[in-house]
Amino acid sequence: MTAGDAYALGLAVLFAVAAGLVGSFALSKRLLLASDVLSHLALPGLGIAMLIHINPLIGGATTLVLGTLLVWHLEQRTGLAADVTIGVVFSTGLALGALVTPHEHLLEALFGEFQPLSLPAFLLGALAVGLIILFLYRFRDALVLSLISPELASATGVNLSRLELYFLLIFSLTVLVGLRFMGALLASALVILPAATGRRFSGSLSQFLLVSAAASVLAVLIGFVVGRQFFPALGLGPTIVLISALLFVVSLAFGGQQRAGV
């Protein structure tokens, strides 16, 4: 393994930790699907960046942030049901992305590609993950209160609308870190699946966060080994997602905290 590969794998593991943690809150807030839509909004940005030959991540980041603000604005201002917002934004983002992405790069944009990373790129990604973890630590209490009751959170002084926006932006940042090797379609899968697995084994928030992050890291590590060994021509995204799904199936057989409760 080259140094570039090691940096790429290191960042993938850090992304997995962030995805597991963010996913735990997204699942609890019942925001998984709404958040999932955001990752698809990176596609038009990736496509445009590839078209004009700039760093795809810059394009992805731009449309992700703009899309996040759009989703938040639609939720706050129009009173549209969440599934309407999801439907509109998802289809538009995907169609626009498919139109502008150069054909030869479409698969890479959708499903990602495992490429060696430079040290500065690794450090930038690690910094983003640090920011995500710092946000969750700083706002964990406000998030907990908003989970149990938005009304109680608001009465305790939590600005719910601002918290929602921050959370969506942090979700977007998480997707952005994983975008390069998971692709626009699958980056959010690592936020969703490990959290679903973690939920099956957890009776408290701290357990939930820990198990989700561990399930996510496990999926990346196993996916890396299996993908490189058996599917070297494909990106690692699909393998990692399938391993994640497998872990969830295992959790169905062995997890049971949700039913057992206390």
Binding site: S28, V144, L145, I148, L205, Q207
Partner: peptide, 28 residues
């Protein structure tokens, strides 16, 4: 101190009573 009208919390939320109270205590 505010006690709202009946709240129906998500039964699947993995939040212990202690965690909820400690969250408010830390915020204050």
């Amino acid at each position: 101190g505010y006690v709202p009208q009946k709240i129906a919390p998500d039964r699947g939320l993995p939040l212990r009573v202690r965690e909820v109270l400690e969250a408010k205590a830390r915020m204050l």
